[in-house]
């Protein structure tokens, strides 16, 4: 079980959180201008790196706030957690 450092509550067990997938995916400003393929890219396609991965979590059984975390998908090392809308240590890749 991961130990996740909620930016508002501090380190808590993973079972208090829910996972929200890849971080920094912005909803397109004007969906009508996108082709089906471009829209599908926003909707379905996610990166799946081996290594550091910015992702979203929500502290469901705590403060109920969403935040971002950078987790290494191999070691599960969480190198940073930061608020929504903030840039991570590696920018908005």
């Amino acid at each position: 079980m991961l130990l996740i450092d909620c930016p508002w509550c501090g380190p808590r067990d993973e079972c208090e959180f829910s996972y929200g997938g890849e971080a920094h995916i912005k909803r397109p400003e004007n969906p009508d201008k996108l082709s089906d393929a471009e829209w599908a890219d926003y909707l379905f396609m996610r990166t799946n790196p081996k290594g550091r991965f910015p992702e979203r979590w929500v502290h469901t059984h705590g403060c109920n706030r969403w935040f971002n975390a950078v987790r290494d998908t191999v070691t599960h090392d969480i190198s940073a957690t930061y608020g929504m809308g903030e840039d991570g240590p590696e920018g908005r890749s």
Partner: peptide, 13 residues
Amino acid sequence: YSWLEEWLQTEWP
């Protein structure tokens, strides 16, 4: 409820 919170917090803060 979680769905509404997610959009409010993450997309339209």
